Simulated scan of single mutants.
Amino acid sequence: MTFRPRRASIVFYVADIARTERFYNETLGLTLERQEGAEPFWLSGKLEDGLEMVFFEMEGKRGDTPAVVFEVSDGGIDDIVESLAAKGVTIVTPVSEAPGGWSADFLDPDGFGLGLWQAENKPRSLK
């Protein structure tokens, strides 16, 4: 299966989501909206060019971000991860539950972390 990403988000894991919300909304003037599906909540906002920024409060992941996460808009995340692994790509996190869907993480040849995210209403496999 060939995956051709059409949309990407930059994802940050932060220590204090409320502090992050104040900084980006009040200091930088970027409008971040509170979202449900992760505790205590998560934030998302779009820049004028359409690039989405996403913030989760999470221990142990800071320093590994920001990460570029490609949306799998048509489904088939399991097939894509299987195809990447068959091509020798290092899979860091296999397909697992994420807010609103499924995600997986992998490395590019230089060790940069990349991710995939797919909405829960899309099929995990298209085979």
Rank of each mutant, 00 (worst) to 15 (best):
T2Q: 08
F3T: 01
R4W: 13
R4Y: 13
R6L: 15
R6E: 15
R6V: 12
R6Y: 14
R7W: 15
I10E: 05
V11H: 07
V11L: 08
Y13L: 03
V14C: 08
V14E: 09
V14D: 10
A15C: 02
D16C: 11
I17M: 03
R19I: 12
T20H: 04
T20E: 08
R22K: 14
Y24D: 02
E26Y: 06
G29L: 06
L30Q: 06
T31Q: 14
T31W: 11
L32H: 07
L32N: 05
L32C: 07
L32W: 11
R34D: 12
Q35L: 13
G37C: 02
A38K: 09
A38F: 15
A38V: 12
A38E: 15
P40L: 14
P40I: 13
P40M: 14
W42D: 05
L43Y: 12
G45E: 08
K46F: 12
K46N: 10
L47W: 06
L47Y: 05
E48P: 02
D49N: 15
G50I: 00
L51V: 13
M53V: 05
M53A: 07
V54A: 07
F55A: 00
M58T: 11
E59T: 06
G60S: 08
G60W: 14
R62N: 12
R62D: 13
G63D: 09
D64F: 13
D64M: 14
T65D: 11
V68N: 07
F70W: 12
F70M: 07
F70H: 08
E71L: 11
E71K: 09
S73G: 09
G76V: 00
G76F: 01
I77E: 02
I77G: 01
D79S: 01
D79M: 01
I80E: 03
I80W: 04
S83Y: 14
S83D: 15
A86T: 03
K87V: 09
G88V: 06
V89M: 10
I91G: 02
V92G: 09
T93Y: 08
V95K: 12
V95M: 12
S96E: 15
S96D: 15
P99G: 02
P99I: 04
G100E: 04
G100W: 07
S103E: 14
A104L: 08
A104D: 03
A104M: 03
L107S: 13
D108H: 00
D108E: 03
D108A: 01
P109G: 09
G111L: 04
G111Q: 04
G111W: 03
G111M: 03
L114F: 06
G115S: 00
L116F: 09
L116T: 00
Q118V: 01
E120N: 15
E120G: 15
P123N: 04
R124M: 12
S125H: 06
L126Q: 04
L126D: 06
